[in-house]
Amino acid sequence: MTQDYIRQRERRTGWYLTIPAVLVLLLVYAYPIIWAFVSSLFTENLSTNLTREFSGFDNYVRLALDGRFWSSIWNTAVFTVVSLIFELGLGLGIALTLDQGFRGRGFVRTAAILPWALPTALIALAWRWIFNDQFGVWNDMLVNWFHIIPESISWLGDPFWAMVAVIAADVWKTTSFVAILLLAGLQSIPQDLYEAHAIDGASPWQSFRQITLPLIMPQILIAMLFRFALAFGIFDLVLVMTGGGPGGATEMVSLYIYDTVMRYLDFGYGAALVVVTFLILIAVVAIAGLSIAKSRTATGVE
């Protein structure tokens, strides 16, 4: 009787403690998404004098035929996939390096975290300056130090190189995050596993393939999941570095949404863009999650 009463009171206190956090989360995360679903069924732009007029699925029909939207999705996909591949490779390399014992490791570790902690918008300014076509240090290094290219490239003025530049900046910024997560995974692997494996005559490469990779797979998957979502919504880096240019070559879906709303004041259509981007994101995460779960049960790992 009193036990029940105490349990009940504890529960009630638990809810009181949780509710403020839940309310803030609902307000900032759930409300905008629900709002977008509702508003995407209305037209609200300059042609309706910014009043709401119900228009059913008109926005979605327009979206399906909107070449600019699909090319922005394509740009986002290219950006995301290429960035993730390089971040994973470099991040793994840096994590393996940081996992070694050497003098000055604390300093190197601090240096390696730094890119992650710096504001993306400011880092974009730095990279815009590095890739400057006239005075940029990157051109100078490639032309005058390494003699890789004969003359300066207009990095941000060329559709292909602008994408390369934006990806390079993103890889620089976020590789440290991947490295931190993977390092945590590496450090949780017991050292005697490697020793036993070496006694069996395994080479370092074999133990990397057979011990390291399988054991840090959870960390790799989590890092890639986080990175996928963030890369897919990349905004500040691209806005500051290229503004989506040249000629829309680096226009990501986020920049298109931003332009639709802030420049064309097309709120209904902007909402439809948000909904479709949201659904694409959810779909990719769900498919990736399912295939991961499937491959786990297939190989019998956990």
């Binding site: 905008p32 629900i34 709002w35 977008a36 948000v274 981007t277």
Partner: peptide
């Protein structure tokens, strides 16, 4: 789940709010 939401998907609804 919400840690995966890009801010760009939130900004429009929040802007109206």
């Amino acid at each position: 789940g919400v840690t995966l939401f890009p801010y760009i998907l939130l900004f429009l609804g929040l802007l109206r709010l």
